[in-house]
Nucleic acid binder design. Structure first.
Lengths: 223, 223
DNA sequence: TTCAATGCTAAACACGTGTTCAGTCGGAGT
DNA sequence: ACTCCGACTGAACACGTGTTTAGCATTGAA
């Protein structure tokens, strides 16, 4: 996306315009609208990228590269347990990328896939740290828990944005920040005190299904 | 949808075909494909419904009506704390409806909206019962919790299905059942034992934000 | 029998889409 | 000066879309 140089290639300008339009309008956005945004003829878009699908693919790559870069640039914060989502929501410059990722999540595209996989991977690391530091309770199935936490958070965000889409997509950062703050309390409460008063449900499940997949199932003492 | 009579009107046949196609292919499904499914000419679809948008609207109504019916028919089970989701996943006959709802969730349509609102409303009732029965811990903000639980569960399901769409949409029931069972363990574990070992995060939040919106904030004794 | 209405269709229309084609412009290389 | 080549465009093409139109049957009423 926005390349470092102040005078980007026409090709880059087209790609950036495409990322933005895809983020705003979804991947159904027309080549013509992208061309107009880039101040260029539709034919030139095809001339440079061959087809709309290839343009889409290059946008995917560009966004993934940008994500990698953003993660590397903020390793410190991320190590502190903040998810990449907070990082993206923090600065409005990430709004297009964030929108693009959410669209890709919504359409089952590869960007969404790998984004989720990465977040799950990260979450496994965070919880591991948390457990070792004694801040987080161990789980009988850490990967399953990490997956559950990521999918529920991301899915919830997606739902929220789909149901109440931002009028101006530039506000996406603000909306995500809003989401993070309003969902923060019920989440923290649930994470802290749980939901049930009894262990009945869990015990019944453990009785019924002897043990979840033996991944990291080191059978931790039940607190 | 599948009307009670064994010999449905052509109009109903078209509507049912539309619900199915919309569920399978999303609301971008062409009038022609729907017409073919119903064994009818595209012109007849317009003749009966006026336009594709009106057809869409009538499908929405039909699905919402079906949902209401299904809920009324299974009040007993629902009172037991099972969500409507379990009910729909239980019988494959609900697969089209389920698919339609998920599509509507994905596209921010009115069906998705009201479906979610209803589920939240129900969840408030369930948790209230649970709290009174001593099975569920009270929350400082019950509506926020109910909303959180519903949105996270539904969003997660949506993500899952979007990322790994069923080959044969008729299997949707099976897939949802699968989802419910695999996500059951981490959910129950989280709900039972929580996530954090300390109350620090929650206490810090409560210190920072004196009190969440005074809805049902009856300031329950912190267990 | 005649008339009107209804269910229905084949064909076309208007439009938006991705893409192609022929050709113009401008600058670098020889 | 000449050529070549890439960036770039306007116009068109092929196609898929929702919708319209004209007309065909069939049915029930007058």
């Amino acid at each position: 996306m926005r390349s470092a140089s102040a005078d980007p290639t026409t090709r880059e300008r087209i790609r950036d315009a495409a990322v933005l339009r895809f983020a705003r309008d979804g991947f159904g956005a027309s080549v013509r609208s992208i061309a107009t945004d880039a101040g260029v003829s539709p034919a030139l878009v095809i001339h440079h990228f061959g087809s709309k699908d290839e343009l889409h693919a290059e946008c995917d790559e560009a966004v993934l590269a940008e994500i990698r870069k953003a993660k590397n640039e903020s390793i410190d914060e991320l190590a502190a347990g903040q998810s990449i989502l907070h990082r993206f929501a923090a600065a409005d410059e990430y709004a297009p990328m964030l929108g693009y990722v959410l669209r890709s999540l919504q359409n089952g595209g590869p960007v969404g896939q790998t984004f989720i996989e990465q977040m799950i991977e990260d979450a496994v690391g965070y919880t591991k740290h948390g457990v070792e530091a004694g801040l987080v309770k161990p789980s009988r199935d850490e990967p399953a828990r990490a997956r559950y936490l990521v999918l529920s958070a991301l899915g919830m965000l997606m739902l929220e944005i789909t149901l109440r889409p931002p009028e101006d997509p530039a506000d996406l950062g603000a909306i995500v920040r809003d989401f993070l703050t309003t969902s923060y309390f019920p989440m923290i409460e649930l994470y802290t005190q749980g939901f049930f008063t009894t262990r009945r449900m869990l015990d019944e499940y453990l009785l019924y299904v002897p043990d979840p997949p033996q991944d990291t199932a080191t059978e931790p003492a039940s607190d």
